[in-house]
Write a protein that binds this DNA or RNA. Structure first.
Length: 566
RNA sequence: GAUUGCGUAGCUCAGUCGGUAGAGCAGCGGCCUUUUAAGCCGCGGGUCCUGGGUUCAAGUCCCAGCGCAAUCACCA
């Protein structure tokens, strides 16, 4: 790896900007004696820490005493020594501003914590350091060391007494004011987006804290975090198309999981009382503002709980997260309102006050559709009146559900988190029917901002009912679906061993992060969202592209070999 | 998968009725020791997404394709 000798491959198509940067790299190394790709550095402060080092008293003491010394020098009198008690800081950051005043250069360096200005004076640094500061490009990573003071305009500034090169950047930098705005570029070159648009980096820092708070919340309540297979020979636990893959040595077809559900339930059978997994799922389906083919969810199961247990758990979790976001996002002028934490989401202002709204499916249906959902004649009449033309082909309950989605769901207030409870059994085939009314099942869905954040169930743990429902479901699957649906007999076996009654819930973490960080698209909260690959143009066949090609050829060969060995 | 919109310099964007391709930033050369998107003087930089077509002439009009976005469909 380290044996690659530095050289100038300089493809013909290279732009003059890149050529200029390469020339500088060479100059920094050969003439100025800097290592363009840096070395270990100890004792670095972050930009935010360095800014926090500023002390007004030390600054004014230094300012006064150095002015006195200067005056004394002019007057030719004896002066007291300059008093400098300013804190010194050593920082590293990417150059995002470069203002060259002649014999004084102002630079803004940026790291994940923010920006800090440094000033490099010709008189204060070594000759080669001065030349480096003069010639450095936007995007280079620099190190600076010196006292933390202030400029005449009041900006906190490190008055550099030493400058070093952390890493030379060869890439043309984005516009220093607008950053990059083209969403495609932002997703494809996220590493540029992250430094050019500090908002991006901020969202991902918030995401990390949200996920960490979720973990702490679950851990504090005695839930055990587990990890279950991503590669599954039967992709169960949800109705979705899986991605397919293949294990060479075992010569076995495999699926990427669409849900961890069936494995987490096995954990309950094994004796875990409370489990959760923050899990990446993969679903081979369309992409839009709230769907990415791989997404993060949290699934939770609690033995001897039910869907009500899960409601209390999730309501308080989301409420707590909202409270902490209000506290954290002071920049957005947020505060805890008397009637609950409010967070903006696009044009909306969502009120996370607990308790959340609760509405029964049947009641919402009555309000939205205007007829009783169990009165199928009235339901069908209404469907026809609404122009639901394929109504005749549908099962009664499917018509109910279509009308519900069309006419009742829009009644939900997107600005209030809402639990819709007690769905008809017929539309949730794998759910346990209600103890009091078998037409209904013990399930809720939580909606926030018009998005479905997740469902919860009182889990089905009767192996015989589970088996017959699975079988029934597979009969209804069309050809394409049935290719992916296989009866998970081992799971039925597990239920036969005996699974305690349980409540379970799945929460879409990406969507929750969208809401909490005011992000419009799921791609804004996923670091590297899936994009179509784009063929490199002629003359642009870069190193990376060739490598990729070589790699895919290699893996194709391996696959071939795997097949041959079988 | 369908519909609509967008694709112009490294980046952010103009480009009129079809008539020689523009600006700011970035880059290169010069000046400048307190700037805040610093400023001033000068210079270079284009596969107008790709391929066809119409036309004397296409960044601009038409067709097809590619990519992205939005909406819908599929889907939790």
């Amino acid at each position: 790896m380290s044996e690659i000798t530095p050289q100038e491959p300089a493809p013909l198509s290279e732009s003059e900007i890149v050529a200029a940067r390469r020339a500088k790299l060479k100059r920094f190394r050969d003439e100025l004696g800097f290592e363009p790709y840096g070395n270990r550095q100890d004792g670095l402060l972050s930009c935010a820490q360095a800014r926090a080092c500023f002390c007004e008293a030390a600054h004014s003491t230094f300012d006064a005493s150095s002015r006195a010394a200067k005056a004394a020098k002019v007057a030719g009198t004896e002066a007291a020594a300059v008093v400098d008690t300013r804190t010194r800081a050593k920082i590293a950051g990417r150059v995002v501003q470069h203002r060259d005043m002649g014999k004084l250069v102002f630079l803004s360096l940026r790291d994940a914590t923010g920006d800090i200005q440094i000033s490099v004076s010709k008189a204060a640094v070594k000759e080669n350091e001065w030349e480096l500061a003069k010639a450095t490009d936007y995007g280079d990573i620099l190190l600076a060391e010196g006292p933390v003071g202030r400029t005449q305009k009041g900006e906190v500034c490190i008055w550099a007494e030493g400058v070093d090169l952390g890493a030379k950047s060869l890439a043309p930098a984005p516009e220093k004011w607008h950053g990059i705005t083209d969403p495609e570029l932002r997703y494809r070159r996220r590493y540029v987006d992250m430094y050019a648009n500090p908002e991006t980096a901020k969202v991902f820092a918030m995401r990390a804290r949200i996920v960490s708070r979720i973990r702490r919340y679950m851990d504090d309540r005695g839930f055990l975090e587990v990890e279950t297979p991503v590669l599954q020979s039967i992709a169960g636990g949800a109705a979705a198309r899986p991605f397919t893959t293949h294990h060479n040595a075992l010569d076995m077809p495999l699926f990427m999981r669409i849900a961890p559900e069936l494995y987490l339930k096995r954990c309950l059978v094994g004796g875990m009382r409370k489990v959760y997994e923050i899990n990446r799922n993969f679903r081979n389906e369309g992409i839009d503002r709230s769907h990415n083919p791989e997404f993060t969810a949290m699934e939770v199961y609690e033995a001897f709980g039910d869907y009500g247990t899960m409601m209390v758990l999730i309501e308080s979790l989301i409420h707590e997260l909202a409270v902490s976001m209000v506290a954290e996002r002071t920049d957005a002028g947020l505060r805890a309102e008397a009637d609950g934490p409010m967070l903006p989401w696009g044009e909306m202002n969502i009120n996370y006050a607990a308790p959340f709204v609760r509405v029964k499916y049947e009641d919402l249906f009555r309000r939205g559709v205007g007829v009783e959902m169990r009165d199928f004649a009235a339901v069908r009449a209404k469907a026809r009146a609404c122009g639901l033309h394929h109504e005749a082909k549908l099962d009664d309950w499917l018509v109910v559900n279509e009308l519900f989605e069309e006419l009742a769901e829009p009644l939900l207030d997107p600005c209030r988190p809402t639990f819709v409870t007690d769905y008809p059994s017929a539309v949730s085939p794998l759910t346990r029917p209600s103890r009091t009314d078998p037409v209904l099942c013990e399930r809720w869905d939580i909606f926030i901002g018009g998005m479905e954040i997740g469902p919860a169930y009182t889990e089905l743990n009767d192996p015989d009912i589970q088996l017959s429902k699975f079988t029934e479901q597979m009969k209804g699957a069309d050809d394409e679906e049935s290719t992916f649906r296989t009866l998970d007999e081992d799971f039925i076996d597990a239920l036969r061993v005996g699974m305690p009654p349980a409540g379970g819930v799945g929460i879409g973490i990406d969507r929750l992060v969208m809401l909490l960080t005011d992000s419009a698209s799921i791609r804004d909260v996923i670091l590297f969202p899936l994009l179509r690959t784009v063929a490199p143009r002629d003359g642009e066949a870069s190193h990376g592209a060739q490598e990729n090609k070589a790699q895919s050829e290699k893996s194709a060969m391996q696959k071939h070999e795997g097949g041959a060995h079988a």
